[in-house]
Amino acid sequence: MTITISLYGVIVKPNIIKKIIALTILGDTANVLIIFLAYRLIPFPKPPILPSLKPSEEALSSFMKSSVDPLPQALVITAIVINVAVIAFLVILAIQVFKQYHTLEYDEIIKLKRGEQV
């Protein structure tokens, strides 16, 4: 549902800042979805961290049986940082556009590019 809303924002909204906000919502939704795929459907699943530095064999096997999937979490933690960097780049581009045209509405920018009056 949130994916739909954010895609609607990216495609339909005419304002560039609103497009960027919708893009952040899209990225966060995808991350939450990936974390959701890692969930384990048992009562009281544990985080993928061993609680002691000298575990016994029973502790290791119960850790294997009760912990959630660690791989999607490792993928998401880098994806968040990359997301922030890309958003910062887009924000700087948007500031550049505003300095050039003094508006952030997409239709008006196209009209100004053609040389018409708004």
Partner: peptide
């Protein structure tokens, strides 16, 4: 569908081997 009582084989491999001191 996706959240099952058993996780995927790759995740199981990581959980099994990360701190397996034996």
């Amino acid at each position: 569908g996706s959240p099952k009582p058993v996780i995927r084989g790759l995740g199981q491999f990581f959980l099994n081997n990360t701190y397996n001191i034996y």
